[in-house]
Design a protein around this nucleic acid. Structure first.
Lengths: 109, 109
DNA sequence: CATTGAACTATGCAATGCAAAGTACTGGAA
DNA sequence: TTCCAGTACTTTGCATTGCATAGTTCAATG
C-alpha cells in the first residue's frame, strides 16, 4: 500500500476522459498528447498511451491518419469522431458526479 | 466500451479515499459507511466494501472492534489509525492533483 | 426446530495502468 | 556502405481493484 499505487489506481478511467478532451480541440499525435498531459501535470508513459489510443480507435471514438514527418518515422495523427464527442460528454457527467461524491464524503470533518 | 464500465474504472482508488475520509469523523460499521456513501451519491455494494475494509485493516490504516448488536449478529466497528490519517492526507493531495490535471486537460475547448 | 434477516466472508472475472522489451524508419557519422 | 542515435509505434505480461455471485454465521421469532 503505497501512494504511487494509489495514484495509478485513481487514474483508471480518467485518462480516457482527458485524452478525448484534448482531441476535441483538434487532431494530434501521441507525443503531442503526452506533452499536453504533462503540462496539466499528468505524466503518462508510452506503454499506457498507445494501447489506450488503439482501444479508443477500435471502439470508433477516434480515427487516425498517417502523416510523414520532417525527421523520423511517420506519425499517426488522431482525431475525435462524433461518437467520441458524445462519449466524452457522458464521461464528463460521470466525472462531475464522482467529483461531487468525493467532495461530499470528505465534508464535515 | 460503455459508460457503466467507465464509471467503475473511475471509482478505482477513489473509494479508499472516501472511506478513510468518512472514518476520520469517527468509527462506523459497514452498513453505516454504505449509507453515508449513498448519501454522497456513491453506490457501493458489499462485495466491494468488505474486501476493501479488510485490505485497509491489513495495511494498518484501520482497526476494528466487535460490538454486540441489539438485533442480529455482532458488528465490526472500524476506526482509523494514525497511519490511516496520514495516508488519507496523502490521498487528498493525490486527489487534488488529479482534479487539477483533469480540469486543465479539459480547458480551452 | 425452522425461518428470516442482518452482518460478514470468499471466489472468480474483467478492465486498466504500467514496466519492459522489441520493431521500424530516418538521418548523420565513421 | 555500415553503424549508431533518435523518434515513433507495438507487444507482452503483471498487479490491482471494483463487482457479481454465492456462501457462512449469528440472533430473534414463531
Amino acid at each position: 500500500m503505497d501512494i504511487e499505487n494509489a495514484k495509478a489506481q485513481m487514474r483508471k478511467g480518467v485518462l480516457e476522459f482527458c485524452i478525448l478532451g484534448i482531441l476535441k480541440r483538434g487532431e494530434a499525435y501521441p507525443s503531442d498528447i503526452m506533452a499536453t498531459l504533462k503540462e496539466a501535470k499528468l505524466i503518462v508513459v508510452e506503454g499506457t498511451l498507445y494501447p489506450l489510443l488503439t482501444r479508443l480507435k477500435n471502439d470508433g471514438l477516434l480515427n487516425y491518419r498517417w502523416e510523414e514527418s520532417q525527421q523520423g518515422p511517420p506519425r499517426k495523427y488522431y482525431s475525435i469522431t462524433d461518437s467520441g464527442i458524445q462519449f466524452h460528454s457522458e464521461l464528463k457527467n460521470t466525472w462531475d458526479e464522482l467529483s461531487y461524491a468525493v467532495k461530499q464524503s470528505q465534508k464535515l470533518q
